[in-house]
Each structure stands twice: as structure tokens, then as C-alpha cells.
Write a protein that binds this DNA or RNA. Structure first.
Lengths: 180, 180
DNA sequence: CTTTTTTAGTTAGGCTCCTAATCATAAGCA
DNA sequence: TGCTTATGATTAGGAGCCTAACTAAAAAAG
């Protein structure tokens, strides 16, 4: 990822050599990645201080079962699917979380292929201690945006998300003229 | 990263247990990360097909010296700084790029601590072949947004970027009341 | 009831990224 | 000049992510 975003004149200059380069689209794309990375990095620094990583944090969040209003996950397969990582990666994550005493792994009695993953008391204490600060920092990140601006932002991001889904669905070397 | 974003009611429910949780802020944050990841993933799939990764691609882009309107980089340290990775990581990236014949590494005659990194003919051919499709896909991602929406999006993202910088600058456990 | 297919989880090996430590060279200073 | 500090690059070791191959158990098919 580029640390310093190119100036717009720079994109215009590059567009002379590459007719396919859409300067405003490239600017949006680079700002999106840069902002996401910065926002993510600002919160991840605190995660690391708590001995967590994004993957570990996501797993712990999915294992919380009280007061979240959402169904919790329990098997490695479900955790992997909902975390957006492969099952192999989830095995590794659970390995280290178990090593650190934050989760426990028990065989499922009904289906002997499956394992049941649970938060330990230590894991539950850690995530519940961590969350309030995490939510405050998240709020601080978005703080200067009005409620209307937040709605607008989510709406615009959703459009790009939709395009990304379209683009990922047609992995061939298409995209010659325009995909809508 | 959560694969499926939580529904808004779910955030409202969770906010009952965590008073610090700002539902609209969390929604923005999660949408930002999810969108960035999806957009990035859509383009990265093509990078992988070309035998590249985001890190390798960024290095090659920084090494292009013609018609980009931007100064090119040449030393590992500068490549690392502008790529946003550590120098150790850059050493590894250049190792594999050199192994694959895409870049070459030569000692700097003036300062014998430094190395000079250059694109090989093969590397230059690869990146120049790759870029047009890359730019078309980038344009496709943003295609449904009008020019005004693009400006709005960049402006809103810039606000969050600014907050991320503030948040990263004060790594202590601050953020109790509000940071502006 | 046996064989095949599917599913859950893991292992093995690779890439990218990190931090910390090391080495050589250059630059600043008494 | 000689010593100390700063800088460029690398190495070593670790974590998280991937794909591909494997094991065991359940489900489906004959």
C-alpha cells in the first residue's frame, strides 16, 4: 500500500500515458484503501497492546454470547466462515488463542467430527475489558461526521461494495467496455 | 475481519450492553473496512494471477520512472518508506522480486551502504502489460459514482483519515471524553 | 449393508508482514 | 584524527494468512 497518496496532478499526468486510468476513480480507490488502513491501524495498535490481532479479536467477538443481539458461533467452521478466513487459518488462530488460555476446545459429543470452541473466563474478561475503549476509539474516528454524512458515506461505500462483488463474480479478463 | 456486517438492529442491541458503542460510528467503521477489503480483494485476485501481490505491485509501481509524473524510488529504504512497510520487509520483497527476475539490485558506488534497485526489462514489461487492466478494474469499481459523489466520498474519507492520525498520535489510553 | 461422497478439522509448506539484533559504512564531534 | 552516533541493509524468528493434501466421521447411494 502506498503510504503517501499521489497528488491529483500526478494522476492526471499518468493518465496521459495510460488512457485507461480514470483519475477520479483512482483517487477514490487509493483514498479508500489508505483511510481504511489508517483507521484500522489506529485501532490495531491498541489491539496489539492487549495481545490481540484483528483475527484473534474477531474470533473473540464471535464467541461472545451475551447481550450482543446476534447469534454466536461455536465451531471452527462457522468461526472461519463468519470471520472471512479459511478453516486452516482458523485452526491456527484457535491454536494460539487456546495456548494463551483465552478459548477452550472440546470435542462435540453429537458429531464426532466437530469441535466446540468456547471463551474461557480469562478470554471473556479480556474482551469485556477491551471493548469499551475500542468502541470509544471507533466513535472518535467517525466523530467529525454528522449523522447525515455517515448515512451518505455508508451509501457510497455500499455502491462500491456492490461493484466489487460484480467484479469478483466475473474473474475472467473481462471489464473491457464497462460492466454495468 | 467480519465477513458479514452485523445488522443495524444488532448494533443497537449491543449498544444497550456497551454504552460506549456508537451504532452509526461502528456501522461506518465496519462498512469502511469491509468495502476496502472487498475492493482490494477484487483487484488482488488479478494481481495473484499475474504472480504479483500488493506489496510486489507497489514496489514495481514505485520503480517505474517514465511518464508517471512522480519521482521514482530507487533504494530499499526509500521503497520501504513509500510503501509503508519496514525495511526488513522490503528486503524480503526485493529478494523474491529479484529471484523472479523482475528487479535487479546493484551496490551504490557513491555510498557503499546503499543498494540501487531497478526494474528489469521483464519487470517493466510485466507491469506495463498489467496496468491497463488494473486501471480499467479500478474505474469499474467506482463507476456508479458521479463525479460529485466521488468528491464527497474523498472528502468524508479524508475526515476519517485525519481522525485516525490524531488517534495514532496519542497512543496512550486517552479518548475518554472526545478528542476534538 | 457396503461403497462413495461430503464435511470438519488438521497438517505441511509458502508468502507477507512484523520486531529485534547484527554488520558495515557514513557523518558528527571532541 | 579518533570515537561516537546515525543510517542502510540484512538476518533470525514469529504471527497470520493462503492453498493443497490428508484423516476421520457422517451422509448418501447403490
Amino acid at each position: 500500500m502506498l503510504k503517501d497518496l499521489p497528488r491529483y496532478e500526478c494522476l492526471l499526468e499518468a493518465a496521459k500515458q495510460f488512457p485507461d486510468l480514470d483519475p477520479s476513480a483512482t483517487e477514490v480507490y487509493l483514498h479508500l484503501l489508505r483511510t481504511s488502513d489508517d483507521a484500522f491501524g489506529a485501532l490495531t495498535a491498541h489491539l496489539h497492546r492487549a495481545g490481540l490481532s484483528q483475527g484473534r479479536f474477531t474470533v473473540l467477538m464471535l464467541l461472545i454470547d451475551k447481550g450482543t443481539g446476534c447469534a454466536r458461533a461455536s465451531t471452527p467452521a462457522e468461526l472461519a466462515d463468519r470471520s472471512g478466513v479459511t478453516r486452516a487459518t482458523m485452526t491456527g488462530l484457535i491454536d494460539t488463542l487456546e495456548r494463551d488460555g483465552l478459548v477452550s476446545r472440546e470435542p462435540d459429543l453429537a458429531d464426532r467430527r466437530m469441535m466446540s470452541v468456547k471463551l474461557t473466563a480469562k478470554g471473556e474478561a479480556l474482551i469485556h475489558d477491551y471493548l469499551p475503549g475500542h468502541f470509544r476509539r471507533t466513535a472518535a474516528l467517525v466523530e467529525p461526521l454528522t449523522e447525515n454524512e455517515r448515512k451518505t458515506l455508508v451509501k457510497l461505500l455500499a455502491k462500491i461494495m456492490g461493484q466489487a462483488a460484480v467484479l469478483s463474480a466475473q474473474p475472467a479478463d473481462a471489464v473491457p467496455a464497462g460492466i454495468t
